[in-house]
Design a protein around this nucleic acid. Structure first.
Length: 953
RNA sequence: GGGCCGCUAGCUCAACUGGCAGAGCGCCGUGCUGAUAACGCGGAGGUAGGUGGUUCGAGUCCACCGCGGCCCA
């Protein structure tokens, strides 16, 4: 309009957020906005963030967006607060998951086939696989606007990184924390490898049938009397070396026919048939009794075995209260035997078959031997009774073989030695939500066991332990140089296995142990290993340890959250992170966990292409942190419709009118807030409170505490401020009121864009760049609250006004008086409102006079002729506006208007002509039908009225 | 078997320290509208998973039980 120069680009109200986002991804890349956001904060105090490296063994899913969104929001927030936030990307590249992916690719399975294929070649394939997946991860991360330095990522397989890890192991070695232990682990006899707890968790099956057998162990001193023991693994019976009882548990000796049987009193219902109690005793009375071995295979010639011992793990929850103990096939069993000095030896080999010395069952696979053993005991009248139990039992998640518990050698870090410190350092860490730290993590640490760090695999950091062939002297190496290799040498198997070292003690040959390192140790080393510390980056490491903030999903409790904590406590005496957000799981729309095997993983590209990254981020930020999230097309659609579009439309509304009026935020001095109309003062007061609320919440890592008030504010902005202010922008005259409206809405939108920038970086960027003409919202400062604008009294009054409106509209509805019909007066309950606010209520209710203080709402329903005509004039305006719109006229177009009407409607046209002309931008209002003007008949108050509009050029 | 979390309208979820049970979506009715894929008002829809307890008062605190999710065994 007029000669005004529009300073804003037009805004498409039919925006496609996915398209908008793609443009901005490209813009940021070209503009190097992220790099700039770091550059402008160089030298400022750091906010230290650590990237928990994703394992690059598969395509990223929508559930991976969740923790990455939380990581991103704080990087952006603290950058806007003036801190330097380095964001070094990282990739977890080693480990069984990567190997399995490659095994699938190569269509091979198991260690034997890998070795036939060739370890060198196999590891090359692993590396290639990782790079392939990292490309997809990077693409997803950039599309979701997770700003990180991807070009300088750390990779756990790099030689520098491996040597940092070696250094860490050497530190632990020197502290005497590394040892070779003989422990019971879940073991797959087909794959011939122990499994990690992580793998174990994937393979439990409910309702697995197993034999449940009760076995007599005859006392040496009295062969008529047996101790009754229960087991679900008969194959461990040839390995029996002891029976365990609880010292304080009460036991019964009962007579059944010619035989006596001893069981826990609390388990007497395990007895079959009639019995007579002969004697009562306690576990401690039984301890030390010798019994007849079932089989002669399990005990070496020396040492005392096969007698009753007391143990703290015996319970009377199930079984007989007398626990059959086979040293090598149960964790409690082995610990007990080691404590009591009971000798033992294996009866089963690494393939899960009985060794030749177990003559009766030699060569049989243990599970196949179960029924034979039961039968053997039955024939020898040692079987008391037999049944089948259904319980939860672990299987190999790869090959589905039933796992067995099996004792073998593994390397350990004695974390239990630092348990107190682990617990206290964890307690000093700020967990969001808090129960993750005290509950899940705290309980886990309280039951800390030594960390099994060795894996009998191929693609991993090789354990730098060399052992002498002759004298068993061992040594830990901490760098490539130390073993005569260049720093950048490939340190992986099989190359490293070629390196032999002379034994300093006996001059013999030292060879590396074959195992590689648990890959969780790799990622836990990232605070220093990402710098190549201590050979490189010493100062950088010291400046960036510990992290202010990390975020991952809940499954990292025993994963990265623990490995970071354990390694940092051992090496540096404190935790590696001060604040941690633990996000929940992403569920599908039916509430099921998203997983590859269920096939319900939401493809991130589907989400990005249909709804956009901002939409999914906003869902994650507003849903309860730490809980499970249900995400699907409906939820995404809703967040777009409920939050993003209303905000976008406020923005589009502003730009539409600002362009028409040529409003330039820099063009005129700001109207002082105190002089602006009450709606503006109210909105600015709300904004001021919002800024403070969001800022305080984010400082406390309370994402919901910021996002939910933001959402509520946008709703108020859209459904109250803009709704009540439309006429201020629409009216023709440019006065102080209109200027105030423009200035207020502009300021609010710019501030909201800055507040939203960390959360929905695309939407905020699009708004901010157009509204300010500046380069990027992500280079701006986070808003600070305008203390002067805060007016709690006004907010209270406005809330009262809105309640009054609500009551008034309800009363009108009940009286069937439509809102377009003005009324003379209304009485509302409550205290009188100041005139300025009462005016808003009058407008909204369309009444001439308002009184407060009534008991309820009462309306003056007497409609005078004058009120009648006024009401009709609003119907007329409404009809003309609709016709203007249907005719495709622009909002600011002037028109000539013709009408053909009779009676009341005609009188309304005449008496309210000025009002109608002003509202509809009609320069003329003519009665009768015009030649050559296309028109339309409409119904107004039941009467046919012909309207014709013509644009004035 | 143990631990953590959840269970509030048909669906998704709120409600500072105990104080009259709410919103959004969906449904029905109605109104408003030259920003909106909208919005307003009204309506239907609730024994707050169950049972006890503490309290003047419990969705909220305690105990036990049930169901679901996750983690661990």
């Amino acid at each position: 309009m007029k000669e005004a120069r529009a300073v804003f680009e037009p805004v498409d109200p039919k925006v496609s957020f996915p398209a908008l986002e793609r443009e901005l991804v490209e813009f940021w890349k070209q503009d190097q906005t992220f790099e700039e956001s770091l550059r402008i904060r160089e030298g400022a105090p750091r906010f230290v963030f650590y990237e928990g490296p994703p394992t690059a063994n598969g395509k990223p899913g929508t559930h991976h967006i969740l923790p990455r969104a939380f990581k991103d929001v704080f990087g952006r927030y603290w950058t806007m607060k003036g801190r330097f936030v380095e964001r070094k990307a990282g990739w977890d590249t080693h480990g069984l998951p990567v190997e399995l992916e490659v095994e699938k690719e190569l269509k091979i399975s198991g260690k034997q086939q890998i070795e036939e294929y060739g370890v060198a070649e196999f590891n090359e394939r692993c590396k290639e696989s990782v790079h392939r997946y990292v490309r997809q991860w990077r693409e997803m991360s950039e599309r979701m606007a997770f700003w990180q330095d991807y070009d300088n990522a750390y990779w756990t397989y790099h030689s520098d990184y491996i040597q940092s890890v070696w250094w860490a192991l050497k530190q632990m070695w020197d502290q005497g924390l590394v040892y070779l232990g003989f422990r019971v682990a879940p073991y797959c006899p087909r794959c011939m490898t122990p499994l990690s707890s992580h793998e174990l968790a994937q393979g439990y099956k409910d309702d697995t049938p197993d034999p449940s057998v009760y076995v007599r162990f005859r006392l040496k001193s009295d062969p008529k009397t047996s101790l009754l023991a229960w087991t679900t693994t008969p194959w461990t019976l040839p390995g029996n070396v002891a029976l365990a009882v609880g010292a304080d548990i009460g036991y019964l000796k009962v007579r059944q026919g010619q035989e006596n049987v001893i069981v826990a009193e609390a388990r007497a219902d395990a007895l079959e048939g009639e019995y007579e109690v002969v004697e009562r005793m306690r576990g401690q009375d039984l301890a030390g009794l010798d019994y007849e071995p079932l089989y002669p295979y399990s005990v070496p010639s020396e040492g005392r075995a096969q007698y009753v011992v007391d143990a703290d793990f015996v319970s009377t929850e199930e079984g007989t209260g007398i626990v059959h103990t086979s040293a090598l096939y149960g964790a409690d069993d082995l610990r007990l035997c080691q404590e009591k000095g009971i000798p033992f030896r294996h009866t089963v080999d690494l393939r899960g078959r009985f060794i030749p010395e177990v003559e009766k069952f030699a060569g049989l696979f243990v599970k196949d031997a179960d029924p034979l053993i039961v039968e053997d005991l039955r024939e020898r009248r040692l079987l008391y009774k037999e049944a089948v139990v259904r319980h939860t039992y672990p299987f190999c998640w790869r090959c589905d073989t039933a796992l067995i518990y099996y004792a073998l050698n593994s390397w350990y870090v004695r974390t239990t030695d630092r348990k107190e410190k682990l617990v206290s350092q964890n307690a000093a860490t700020n967990w969001v939500p808090p129960y993750m730290g005290t509950g899940r993590m705290g309980d886990w640490l309280a039951n800390n066991v030594d960390w099994a760090i060795s894996r009998s695999r191929y693609w991993g950091t090789p354990l730098p332990f060399w052992v002498c062939e002759s004298c068993e002297e061992s040594r830990c190496v901490e760098s490539a140089e130390e073993i005569g290799l260049p720093r950048d040498a490939d340190l992986h198997r099989p190359h490293i296995d070629q390196v032999t070292l002379p034994c300093a003690k006996c001059g013999g040959t030292m060879r590396r142990i074959p195992e590689v390192l648990d890959c969780w140790f790799d990622s836990g080393a990232m605070p220093f290993a990402q710098r190549g510390y201590p050979q490189h980056g010493k100062q950088l490491f010291e400046e960036t340890f510990p992290a202010d903030f990390i975020a991952e999903a809940v499954d990292q409790t025993r994963g990265w959250f623990y490995s970071l904590l354990a390694e940092s406590v051992i090496l540096f005496g404190r935790n590696a992170y001060k604040n941690v957000i633990c996000t929940g799981h992403v569920l599908d729309e039916r509430g099921q966990k998203a997983s590859k095997s269920r096939g319900n993983v939401l493809d991130p590209n589907y989400v990005f292409d249909h709804f956009g990254s901002d939409a999914i981020r906003w869902i994650f930020f507003t849903a309860p942190v730490g809980e499970s999230y249900r995400v699907g097309p409906q939820a995404l659609q809703e967040v777009v419709r409920r939050f993003m579009l209303p905000l976008w439309n406020v923005y589009s509304f502003f730009v539409t009118y600002a362009r028409i009026d040529g409003f330039d935020p820099a063009g005129r001095a700001a109207v002082p807030v105190g002089q602006r109309p009450v709606l503006d003062r109210w909105l600015l007061s709300r904004l001021s409170g919002l800024v403070r609320t969001a800022d305080v919440a984010l400082e406390r890592y309370d994402v919901n505490g910021a996002s939910r008030p933001l959402e509520a504010f946008v709703e108020d902005l859209s459904t109250w401020y803009v709704r009540r202010s439309r006429r201020r922008f629409w009216k023709s005259e440019s006065d102080a009121d209109k200027t105030a409206a423009y200035q207020t809405l502009h300021e609010v939108l710019v501030t909201v864009a800055r507040l939203l920038a960390p959360f929905v970086p695309f939407l905020a960027e699009a708004m901010y760049r157009n509204l300010t003409g500046e380069r990027s919202v992500h280079l701006a400062d986070f808003p600070t609250a305008e203390v002067g604008a805060h007016d709690p009294g006004l907010e209270t009054q406005m809330a009262a006004a809105r309640r009054a409106v609500e009551a008034g509209l309800a009363a009108r509805d009940a009286a069937h008086l439509k809102v377009r019909q003005p009324l003379n007066a209304a009485v509302l309950p409550g205290d009188p409102l100041p005139e300025e606010i009462a005016g808003i209520v009058r407008d909204e209710l369309n009444v001439k006079q308002l009184k407060f203080g009534g008991a309820g709402v009462s309306l003056d329903t007497n409609i005078t002729e004058e009120l009648r005509l006024e009401g009709l004039s609003r119907d007329i305006v409404r009809a003309i506006q609709q016709l203007r719109k249907d005719s495709g006229f622009n909002i600011e177009d002037r028109i000539q208007t013709w009408y053909d009407a009779d009676g009341q409607v005609a009188r309304a046209f005449a008496s309210q002509a000025d009002y109608i002309k002003a509202e509809t931008l009609s320069v003329e209002l003519n009665r009768g039908r015009a030649e050559g003007v296309s028109g339309k008949s409409v119904k107004i108050d039941g009467e046919e009225v012909w309207l014709g509009l013509k644009q004035v050029t």
